[in-house]
């Protein structure tokens, strides 16, 4: 193999995503002089933070060959419970922790059904989607919870070292997820199970426990996103997060994580969330009507999957 010969397919497989993002940025900055400004860049990052946090959890689930459709409803339920406890007099910090623990517990609930009852993740989390939404509506009687303590305001609107807190939370969670996936035995087990469950089982990996973990982690991610969203809205809405699962899955898939499991990572997901966020932002700046925005977004997802498919089939 000569060093001079560039394997474009390899380059494309590895950096194609980033190249696509850069191309988008270049195009949009040519189309609108408001696009590539510091304030707009921060704006985009803050806008994608909630989706990116949820998508981190989704990435772990999907690498393990699962899917989690319940995250939007789970976000609503943990949001209203956390807000409700805080308004009811529990110290705000504790209320946030309880909400995150609840998110983890609900995710575990999904995970147990998938791993131990052997029900398809799609079905289990579809049930979770309606159960958690119903619980959120029942808990609040359908009304938003407001009058929150200042901690939530900080989560949504605070800044640290010049950057909004939601961006820090997103980056922090991204890093934690990356470390789990790449540097822990647990993360390795997730890849192994997603890549070949039978081989993982025959290697003595506790497949079911690891599967349950992936859903628990996704629940935690959704609860964390719920805290940020509650802060942004300065209230907790039982109807929050509708269709968030689709945005999260889109970010993961556009980010190059295989829906067939075993392959991908959280930085790809960040780039995927950025691509979707940049497209949304750019279309807003260009005054594209929102109905058309949805069409474009769906088209981008299809295009990303098509490209992944082409790269994947060439490989085998």
């Amino acid at each position: 193999m000569s060093l001079a010969r560039v394997n474009w397919r390899e380059v494309f497989a590895r950096f194609g995503l980033v190249m696509a993002l850069v191309a988008l940025i270049v195009i949009l900055s040519l189309l609108s002089d408001r696009f590539l400004t510091a304030s707009n860049v921060v704006n985009v990052l803050r806008q994608i933070s909630i989706n990116a946090i949820i998508a981190c959890g989704m990435t772990v689930v999907i690498i393990g060959r699962g899917i989690d459709l319940s995250v939007g409803s789970l976000l609503a339920l943990t949001g209203v419970v956390g807000a409700g406890l805080a308004v009811g007099g529990l110290p705000a910090g504790l209320a946030v922790l309880v909400a995150m623990a609840l998110g983890t517990a609900l995710g575990t609930f999904n995970g147990l059904f998938v791993a131990y009852a052997g029900i398809a993740p799609f079905i289990v989390t579809l049930a979770g989607l309606t159960i958690f939404r119903g619980a959120a509506l029942a808990y609040t009687d359908g009304r938003p919870i407001s009058g929150l303590p200042p901690l939530f305001m900080t989560l949504g609107y605070g800044t640290f070292l010049g950057l909004p807190v939601p961006i820090w939370i997103m980056l922090g969670f991204l890093l934690v997820t990356h470390v789990i996936l790449r540097y822990t035995a647990l993360g390795r087990a997730v890849y192994a199970i997603g890549g070949n469950e039978e081989a993982a089982r025959l290697s003595g990996i506790p497949v079911r426990r690891v599967q349950a973990f992936t859903f628990a982690y996704s629940g935690l991610a959704a609860a964390l996103a719920a805290m940020v969203l509650t802060g942004r809205l300065n209230s907790a809405q039982p109807s929050a997060g509708v269709m968030f699962e689709l945005d999260a899955i889109a970010a993961v898939v556009v980010g190059g994580t295989s829906l067939f499991g075993g392959r991908g990572g959280v930085f790809g997901t960040l780039v995927g969330a950025l691509i979707i966020g940049v497209i949304n932002n750019g279309m807003n700046l260009l005054n594209v009507p929102s109905f058309y925005q949805q069409i474009v977004k769906g088209g981008v997802i299809l295009a990303a999957l098509l490209i992944e498919r082409l790269v994947a089939t060439r490989r085998t």
Partner: peptide, 21 residues
């Protein structure tokens, strides 16, 4: 292919599968 290896993973990652703990 079906039972022994995780084809997506590297040699090292496959060798380590049984000894993660």
């Amino acid at each position: 292919k079906a039972q022994g290896l995780v084809m997506e993973l590297t040699v090292q990652e496959n060798v380590s599968l049984t000894t993660l703990s």
